[in-house]
């Protein structure tokens, strides 16, 4: 494993660090909104991982140009399409989670996990 191929993995490592930051927010914080925020950060990091994998050296956006040379490289359109779908689905799930939080707040008067657990045990 030479230094060049290690440098080629640098993007992946940064994306994994971002992912783990999101994961930490999800499991370390008891506030429900903070958990959803952590999930969002994790999600965007996964998108970035896919987009990173779709890139090609000397490539350009996958839009065919008349003037381009025959051997023009394009980045992978498939990863773009998958992530386009994932972004929109992600917002739908976020909206669902936030609606549940609003509902929990109405019934329990709190959005802190430990307080909700105490209220649940009392009842």
């Amino acid at each position: 494993m030479d230094i060049n191929s290690l440098a080629g993995l640098f993007n992946y490592w940064i994306v994994i660090v971002l992912m783990m930051t999101g994961f930490y927010i999800v499991i370390a914080r008891g506030n429900l909104i903070k958990t959803v925020i952590g999930l969002n950060i994790f999600q965007i990091s996964v998108f970035l991982l896919y987009i990173t994998m779709g890139r090609v050296d000397q490539g350009t956006a996958p839009i065919i140009q008349e003037a381009a040379q025959a051997d023009q490289a394009y980045s992978n359109p498939l990863s773009s399409v998958l992530i386009l779908t994932a972004i929109v689905v992600g917002v739908a799930t976020t909206a669902l989670a936030l609606a549940l939080i609003v509902r929990i707040r109405e019934d329990y008067g709190s959005i802190e996990e430990d307080e909700i657990l105490i209220l649940d045990r009392e009842s």
């Binding site: 909104i33 350009t60 996958p62 980045s75 773009s80 992530i83 917002v91 707040r105």
Partner: peptide
């Protein structure tokens, strides 16, 4: 990273709509 379509969607939907939804939730909770 040469993915302008995803960038547009992320800027509009991810940075825009998500943030608005979360701010709405904050207004209703704490």
């Amino acid at each position: 990273l040469d993915a302008p379509d995803v960038a547009f969607t992320e800027a509009a939907v991810g940075a825009g709509i998500s943030t608005v939804l979360m701010l709405g939730t904050l207004a209703l909770t704490s």
